[in-house]
C-alpha cells in the first residue's frame, strides 16, 4: 500500500516538477514581441490552451528573441516558457532539430531520432518528460513546440493539437 502510494505520488511529482511549477507561475519572456519576424499560434481545443509565440530571426538564421503570450495549463505554459529560454541564440535549423527530438521524446519514442539528433542534450527541457505517464497531457507539453515549428516555416495557419 505504502509502495503503491509512494510510486503514484512520484508520478505526479515527476509531472509537476519544481522547475515546471516555477515556469508555470512565472513564465519567462512572457508578452508580445513588437518587432517579431515570425510568429504562430498554438491551440489545444481539449483544454482551451491558447498560446501565441513570437520570434525575431536574423538574416543569418539566428533566433535573436523569443516571447509568448496566452493562457493554458501549467504544462503548456511551462513548456512555452522553457522553449523561449532554450531557443534564444540558436539558429533555426538547430531549433528544428530540437523540436523533432522534444516531440518524439515526449511521446516516449527515444529511438525515433538517429545521427546528429540522437546526440542532442535536451537540458532542462527534460523536466517535461514526466508527461510520458500521462498520455492526455503530451499535447499540452508539445503545443508550443509545434508552434515554433510552424513559425519557423512561416505557416500562417494556427496549429492545433487535434
Amino acid at each position: 500500500m505504502k509502495d503503491k502510494d509512494t510510486s503514484k505520488a512520484d508520478e505526479l511529482r515527476e509531472l509537476y516538477r519544481e522547475l515546471i511549477l516555477d515556469h508555470a507561475r512565472s513564465p519567462r519572456h512572457f508578452g508580445k514581441l513588437t518587432d517579431a519576424t515570425h510568429s504562430a499560434e498554438g491551440i489545444n481545443p481539449l483544454c482551451g490552451d491558447k498560446l501565441k509565440l513570437y520570434f525575431r530571426i536574423l538574416e543569418n538564421g539566428q533566433i535573436d528573441a523569443a516571447c509568448f503570450e496566452g493562457s493554458g495549463c501549467a504544462i503548456s505554459v511551462a513548456s512555452a516558457s522553457l522553449l523561449t529560454d532554450t531557443v534564444i541564440g540558436m539558429n533555426t535549423s538547430d531549433a528544428l532539430d530540437f523540436f523533432a527530438v522534444v516531440v518524439s521524446r515526449l511521446r516516449g519514442d527515444v529511438d525515433a531520432n538517429n545521427g546528429k539528433r540522437a546526440a542532442i542534450d535536451l537540458g532542462k527541457i527534460r523536466a517535461l518528460e514526466g508527461v510520458k505517464e500521462f498520455p492526455s497531457r503530451v499535447k499540452c507539453a508539445s503545443l508550443a513546440w509545434h508552434a515554433l515549428n510552424s513559425a519557423i516555416h512561416q505557416d500562417s495557419q494556427a496549429v492545433s493539437t487535434e
Binding site: 509537476y16 481539449l46 483544454c47 493554458g72 495549463c73
Partner: peptide, 22 residues
C-alpha cells in the same frame, strides 16, 4: 489559479473523474 486541466489530471490520478474545460 490552478488551471482546470491540471486539476483534472491530478484528480484522475486519484481515481476521481470530473470534467474540465469549457
Amino acid at each position: 489559479d490552478i488551471h482546470p486541466h491540471d486539476i483534472g489530471t491530478i484528480l484522475d490520478h486519484q481515481g476521481v473523474a470530473i470534467r474540465t474545460g469549457h
